[in-house]
């Protein structure tokens, strides 16, 4: 079954952004960094571009994606 576009985007972006962060953390805490293999696009293009964008723009893009968050307007009353 074909994975719908937004699931594909979320799954890959999450995987590669976390991997990049784990690499940063490994350096910060002096442990062995993760093995690097797989997609050139996600590692060399997507991750650096994501990191260059201002937080407000990143948040707007994430908010525009379909999902439960678009149907939750406020915290529930007690």
């Amino acid at each position: 079954m074909t994975v719908p576009f937004f699931e594909w985007l979320r799954s890959n972006s999450e995987e590669y952004l976390l991997e990049a962060s784990q690499r940063d953390m490994a350096t910060r805490y002096g442990i062995e960094a993760p093995v690097r293999d797989g997609s050139v696009f996600w590692r060399r293009i997507f991750t650096p571009v994501y990191r260059l964008l201002p937080w407000g723009l990143r948040r707007s893009i994430m908010s525009a994606m379909p999902g439960s968050h678009r149907r939750w307007m406020r915290r529930a009353p007690p």
Binding site: P4, E7, R10, M65, G67, S68, R71
Partner: peptide
């Protein structure tokens, strides 16, 4: 279905289909 693969729900756990709700690990 949302970007996580979980079912899209609102705060009452109602899906976007009338009369159908979702909860737990299958929802986001």
């Amino acid at each position: 279905i949302g970007s996580t693969g979980g079912i899209i729900v609102d705060q009452r756990m109602h899906t976007r289909t009338e009369g159908v709700y979702a909860a737990g690990d299958c929802a986001e």
